[in-house]
Amino acid sequence: MNDLVDLAVRVLRDETGVEADGAMTRQRIEAEWLQHRARGRAIRKMIIAAAVTLVVGGGALAATTLVPHARPTSSNLLPARTPRPEVRPARTAVAPSETVTSAAFTEAASSPIPTHPSTPPSGNLGRSADAATSAYAAAHHAHFLDRDWSRALALWTRYLRLAPRGQLAPEAHFNRAICLFRLDRRKEATAELQPFAIGLWGSYRQREARQLLDTLAGTVR
């Protein structure tokens, strides 16, 4: 009977020892690695931003609480020139990749307005946000109500130009891909859908993108 167990063990070894392709598994694993890297970067940025905010905020707090009681000498007037409210405009001009404050980070994550180096100073920021928002609204209308694919495509592209890193950018990219698909520009649609399918946007629209790519796979010219 012991021999039988050994025999069964050998058969199991042979059956399970063959080389497997595992291409799909590898693809999924690589997508998760990319996500992990993106998450790591975001966390690092957040930590740096929080630390800088603490330092800047602490300095400003010290200035506002200590300075009024101190004698107005030339040395203690210096920190009083940078009270807390005045820090904000300086933050908005910093690019996300070089972000140093939590305020700038929060803005980048929660609004469709890009905090790009080329972004105009705070006066124009509101106008830029308005333009992006109205572009998004117009694109949404053209896409989902009018179903005018070429106009919607142009408007999604316009929104993405105005807010390339905006909160609604992933949705705009996906909708852009749908427009390209509807307009029979399948190669461009495929290129737009690939990042979703491999998980560059996390699991957001991943399943839909894969289904669409499967549909496109046999028909791309």
Binding site: L12, A20, G22, R37
Partner: peptide, 30 residues
């Protein structure tokens, strides 16, 4: 992967479950 895949197959006794397990482990590799 080959060694781990074989071990996973032998331990869980099923191809699909072994692939899931492998993905589970390698996704955590970093």
């Amino acid at each position: 992967q080959h060694r781990l895949r074989c071990f996973a197959r032998r331990l869980v006794g099923e191809e699909a479950a072994a692939e899931d397990l492998l993905q589970d482990v390698f996704a955590r590799l970093p």
